[in-house]
């Protein structure tokens, strides 16, 4: 099942793929009727076979509303399905190898003081099981203050990469420096660990913020002033 940098899953629903894993799952497949505001619990028993390859397996449990369409009028019938993702990590030792890499940690090298500074973080998974990066971006303004942007602990799946945003009070946010006006040299250090333990993975970048718009505005005003004076003197 391919997935993108945002953790979205691509459902593979061909019968051969489904048949390959039917022995793993046991749950009641009988249809159930639900009245308004009613709910139903599904209990899924998962039993990987003894010879299952040691790796991560991705599944989605789908519940769908049964629909037919025989109303006798020209119409389409909308059928809804909702999924719950299952990720099964199979290993004999209980400690599947996890390895991360920084694919991208970037920001513009030079910015205008009013344009804001947003960091792009893309983390890759080179190991055999998924992980969450636990870490932060520490931004030091040279001869100024220090700002900490906490990374959101998003799942990075095997063989893939994930765009990591930041988190503030349990809300996902872009990794953006606070404040409307930045000036000076900013040194940003990305550091994180895999699942909050082990060796820290780090990278450092620099950004220069300069008030180009203010300077351009002042130059423009000066030129206009000089022109007006010249016209007035002639």
């Amino acid at each position: 099942m391919p997935f993108d940098k945002e953790g979205h899953a691509e459902l593979i629903e061909d019968q051969n793929s489904i048949n390959a894993f039917t022995g793993w799952f046991f749950f009641d497949t009988n249809p159930t009727s639900l009245g308004t505001t009613a709910s139903h619990d599904f209990y899924v028993k998962i039993t990987p076979p003894a010879g299952a390859e040691e790796k991560d397996y991705y599944f989605t449990f789908i519940a769908e509303v049964q629909s037919d369409n025989g109303l006798g009028i020209n119409n389409s019938k909308a059928q809804s399905r909702i999924g719950a993702n299952l990720l099964v990590s199979v290993s004999k030792g209980g400690t599947p190898g996890k390895k991360a890499s920084i694919i991208t940690f970037a920001a513009p090298k030079i910015i205008d003081s009013f344009s804001g500074l947003t960091y792009e973080v893309l983390i890759g998974n080179l190991g055999s099981s998924f992980f969450k990066p636990v870490g932060k971006i520490t931004v030091d303004q040279i001869l100024g203050s220090t700002t900490t942007l906490n990374l959101a602990p998003l799942n990075v799946l095997v063989g893939g990469s994930r765009e990591i945003s930041c988190i503030q009070e349990e809300e996902l946010t872009p990794c953006k420096m606070p404040g409307k006006f930045l000036i000076g040299i900013y040194r940003a250090n990305l550091s994180f660990t895999v699942d909050g333990s082990g060796e820290s993975i780090e990278k450092q970048i620099y950004t220069i913020a300069f008030p180009f718009s203010i300077v351009l505005g002042l130059i423009t005003i000066f030129i206009i002033y000089r022109l007006i004076r010249r016209l007035a003197s002639t």
Partner: peptide
């Protein structure tokens, strides 16, 4: 005649 079909919408969260 009368024309019909079924449109299936599938909602899945991210991993």
């Amino acid at each position: 005649g009368t024309y019909n079909n079924i449109i299936t919408f599938t909602a899945i969260p991210s991993y």
